[in-house]
Write a protein that binds this DNA or RNA. Structure first.
Lengths: 171, 171
DNA sequence: CACCGGTGGTTCAGTGATTGAACCGGAACG
DNA sequence: CGTTCCGGTTCAATCACTGAACCACCGGTG
């Protein structure tokens, strides 16, 4: 989306939201951030996105306050979801659910569970066991019935990502 | 998004979903379809989208089965949401809610209610009065507290759209 | 200090998509 | 007939994305 002329409609929050996360790659970067990816190089290899595009997207996501760019103890740069970024989870989940429903005949590619009690999450993000809406850090993600294993993982990062783990847990 | 090389990741339903509705304008077209817009010209003036782009998007959405292109009794062409298109509602609602939360300080720009009993809908699409998850055709949409009236409506279509009405109800 | 690998980031030409404005053609109307 | 409405197309100009090579910094190591 062009920065100069945007979607314009001042009374549509969807248009506003899409100005931020509607560009190519943006939501996939956010998804990876939910999965625990934090490093520039990991985003690049994981998504297969050109480094120039990745840099531009990270920059705009940081500007908009969806991601925070931080230097960790070892001096390495880390991109982490802010609260505003984490608030995108329902949208990400809804789109994933739609993709699962219409393009994954064998069931969800990723199964979501409540990490505390193991209950599966319904379409609304509610745990079937305890009935509560589960906060993001307590959500466990694992390969689901529709997952298609493509041989042993190519790179170490996706190997880790295809293992059951909690959202936001750093790699 | 390019048709040739896509997001690739075969195990991510988000990537799959974004291949369909992730292109510029696509989700806004779907939103307008929820609002009841059905005609080519109405989409064009309502969204301010170039007609060539609109045509290309409508074509791909029809190909993907999100919209259906039909000729009505009077011979006019109408684009309507299919069941698959209507299934995008939770994603659209989630993104609208995110936009409202972070970019509309005075509250939601559009208020959602259960048409049957007038109960407001929560973030999960549940009616506060009857407690049920409300099906799309029973959802009423109206200007909310964050709505910014910009003088009398310019064109008759947006005039109608800024009036309380049910989703999917043709203009 | 010279060298080295890892990592975040930049540059740049080539390609493809988006834009806006003008144009096309059929159908309904007078 | 001439006009208007409407879905759709054409086209040049612009803009964004891509891929591959390159750069700069940093912390070791010899």
């Amino acid at each position: 989306m062009a920065l100069p002329s945007t979607y314009a409609d001042p009374n549509c929050s969807l248009a506003r939201a899409l100005e931020i996360v509607g560009e190519r790659w943006s939501l996939l970067i956010v998804r990876d951030a939910f999965y625990g990816v934090r490093r520039f190089g990991d985003f690049a290899t994981q998504l297969g996105i050109p480094r120039a595009s990745l840099n531009s997207r990270l920059k705009s996501l940081v500007e908009e306050g969806v991601l925070a760019r931080e230097t960790d103890a070892g001096g390495a740069i880390e991109y982490q979801l802010t609260d505003k970024g984490v608030a995108l989870w329902p949208a990400v989940r809804a789109l994933m659910a739609w993709g699962d429903e219409f393009y994954s005949p064998n069931g969800a590619k990723r199964a979501l569970r409540h990490d505390q009690d193991g209950g599966p999450l319904d379409a609304g993000g509610r745990c079937a066991t305890c009935g509560a809406v589960i906060p993001v850090p307590e959500i466990q993600i694992a390969p689901g019935p529709g997952f298609e294993a493509s041989g042993p993982a190519k790179d170490p990062v996706s190997a880790v990502l295809n293992t059951p783990r909690r959202l936001l847990q750093p790699i």
